[in-house]
């Protein structure tokens, strides 16, 4: 039984241009799934449709047995606690400390008043420190986020997603603004999250070789449609051409 099932998903921002056309795929528990494709192919929109930061027009998204597209406000908030998200630009609150930013991941479990007052239990704080330690940035816990490097900020982002206790983590180009070494650190962390903790990861990537070396499965998106869906070794020259519209030797793949 797969954790996430997307059926006939359609989305258009303007009436005549479709960003997503009849998307169908599923993801199992603990699977590491990469989504590749040129800019404007609809990768980010696809990810945002899953946790409804973007409202899809048509289709079904079955997550743990319920259709996310039919949920109301309160149910949606509850469902979102099970779905973490990591962003290209980290999207932390720059003026707050690292630990505060990590604890933001717990708001989904809080009532309005608890959250506004910033009441966090000792267990939650301990868990936050445990996660920071696991990602190797516990020394920065009381620093303001704008003092951290990009790689460190992205690790804070991962902690914020993990403290939600999610079943699924969506990563929107997590390494697109990082240097090669930080990129490797982040990808290794994401890989270990899916393997050790059994959390499904759906990762948007620009780097084909990174996708091939880390993923269990790759989805190729071009112009709003899935043109490839298979394991990483099945993605050969022919499919890469179908995804990007040109030969591999014309691309920078690393």
């Amino acid at each position: 039984m797969s954790l996430l099932q997307v059926k006939d998903l359609n989305k258009s921002y303007q009436t005549d241009t479709k960003v997503l056309k009849n998307i169908n795929f599923s993801a199992g528990t603990g699977e590491f799934l990469s989504v590749i494709g040129p800019s404007g192919a609809g990768k980010s929109t696809l990810l945002r449709c899953i946790n409804r930061l973007v409202q899809a027009d048509k289709g079904e998204i079955l997550f743990g047995g319920q259709d996310l597209l039919k949920l109301r406000k309160k149910e949606l908030r509850a469902a979102r606690t099970n779905i973490g998200m990591i962003f290209q630009h980290y999207n932390l609150v720059p003026r707050l400390t690292v630990i505060e930013n990590v604890l933001h991941g717990r708001f989904g479990y809080k009532s309005t008043l608890q959250g506004v007052l910033g009441r966090f239990s000792e267990e939650e704080k301990e868990r936050a420190f445990y996660l920071l330690e696991k990602l190797g940035i516990e020394a920065h816990a009381y620093k303001r986020c704008d003092q951290l490097s990009g790689g460190q900020q992205q690790r804070v982002g991962i902690c914020r997603a993990l403290i939600q206790n999610p079943k699924l983590i969506l990563c929107d180009e997590p390494i697109a603004s990082l240097d090669p070494h930080s990129s490797k650190v982040i990808m290794d962390h994401l890989k270990s999250i899916s393997e050790e903790m059994g959390i499904t990861c759906i990762v948007n990537l620009h780097q084909v070789e990174v996708a091939q070396s880390y993923s269990d499965r790759i989805i190729g998106l071009n112009n709003g449609s899935i043109v490839f869906d298979g394991s990483n070794f099945q993605l050969d020259q022919l499919y890469i051409k179908r995804v990007y519209g040109m030969e591999t030797r014309e691309l920078i793949t690393v």
Binding site: R80, M85, N91, V93, H104, G108, V116, Q164, L170
Partner: peptide
């Protein structure tokens, strides 16, 4: 206020007041 920050908090399941107090106000 940076749109991404609001998006990130919404994606964790935070409510409106949470976002205001812990993201909009500090920034």
């Amino acid at each position: 206020v940076d749109k991404g920050m609001l998006e990130a908090l919404r994606s964790t399941g935070s409510g409106w007041w949470h976002t205001i107090v812990h993201a909009v106000l500090p920034s």
